[in-house]
Simulated scan of single mutants.
Amino acid sequence: MQKDQLFTRRRLLLAGAAALGAAGTAGLVVASDGEEAAGTVAPAAGPPVRQAPKSSAFRLQPLTGYGPPPTAPRKLKVRKEPILRISGTGRRMMLTFDDGPNPAYTPHILDTLGKYGVRAMFFLCGECIVENRELVARMAAEGHVVGNHTWTHPLLTTLNRREIRDEMESTSDAIEDTYGERPQWFRAPYGAWNRAAFQLGAQMGMEPMAWTVDSTDWTTPGTRTIVDTIESGAAPGVVVLSHDAGGDRSQSVQALREYLPYLLDNGYHLTVPRRRT
């Protein structure tokens, strides 16, 4: 697809989002300059387990589409461990936010990232996407990368293969409808990976992404604790886990306002993964 066609598609998608308001569709991801490297499995983190609905509840009514019909995702090599770090020269780090989008917290996080010209990665839950389409549109417009975090945030190790597929596939469908492209990254809720998740993710063209530093914001330990955890864990290649939904994330919002300028002042380049073509 040519560059001018990509921007035309984005404009059309964003126009659709504006017309539909909270139920609108969204635009196109902007490619970036970070590359991933394999690591070891991260510890589980996140809010309490939610129960997954029946698979029939995952099916979404198709929205009016713009641009060419979607193409089948490129199948990837099946990994045995998730990616923990990003590679590349210099002081590169990546900020990631899970469980959203949420209208109470995600806009403030996007505002802070925009203030400093920083892009981040958001791992989205399908049930939140369909209620906050305009926020996914904004992520696309501002160049953030989104990943698949399942539909209902279940513990995948308690589901069968069909249920895991439904959780992942329905969320990728929702992302494509609202963001403009299918996701190329997947993160298992609670960091609970199993063989089926790795296999299904690869079949759907998604690499498994975990994290290096857990901000512990999901425990609401206090803004100062979150800031100290991230600043002390800062290092080249680090992937930071934070949350913009799944509970009271006001501490996460305030912490970002404090640690982001600190990281930038200390020479860190906050990046996102490179888009595969």
Results as ranks from 00 to 15, higher is better:
213 V>P: 04
202 A>G: 07
44 A>W: 10
123 F>I: 02
31 A>E: 10
268 Y>S: 02
8 T>E: 14
55 S>Q: 11
90 G>W: 10
52 A>R: 13
248 D>G: 05
72 A>D: 06
71 T>V: 14
208 P>R: 02
254 Q>N: 07
230 I>M: 11
124 L>K: 04
20 L>R: 09
161 R>G: 02
260 L>R: 07
254 Q>L: 11
40 T>P: 00
121 M>C: 13
19 A>F: 04
157 T>V: 11
114 G>E: 08
215 S>E: 00
132 N>Q: 06
202 A>F: 10
140 A>Q: 08
248 D>V: 05
95 L>V: 10
75 K>P: 10
10 R>Q: 15
136 V>C: 03
257 R>M: 04
105 Y>Q: 06
145 V>R: 14
44 A>I: 09
47 P>V: 06
27 G>S: 06
198 F>P: 04
238 V>I: 12
179 Y>C: 07
272 V>I: 13
212 T>H: 08
6 L>C: 02
9 R>M: 12
191 G>Q: 08
235 A>T: 01
71 T>P: 00
152 T>M: 00
134 E>G: 07
195 R>T: 15
90 G>V: 10
257 R>G: 15
144 H>I: 09
45 A>Q: 12
221 P>W: 04
60 L>C: 01
126 G>T: 09
20 L>M: 11
193 W>H: 02
95 L>M: 15
120 A>H: 06
203 Q>F: 01
244 D>W: 00
214 D>F: 08
9 R>T: 09
131 E>W: 01
169 E>R: 12
274 R>V: 06
75 K>F: 00
193 W>Y: 15
234 A>H: 04
150 T>P: 09
21 G>E: 09
25 T>Y: 04
227 V>P: 00
250 S>D: 12
270 L>C: 14
238 V>L: 06
51 Q>R: 13
91 R>S: 11
265 D>Q: 14
234 A>P: 06
77 K>T: 14
257 R>N: 11
181 E>P: 00
189 P>Y: 00
217 D>A: 05
67 G>I: 10
81 E>A: 12
77 K>F: 05
65 G>V: 09
26 A>L: 09
191 G>K: 08
122 F>V: 07
132 N>W: 01
185 W>I: 04
143 G>W: 03
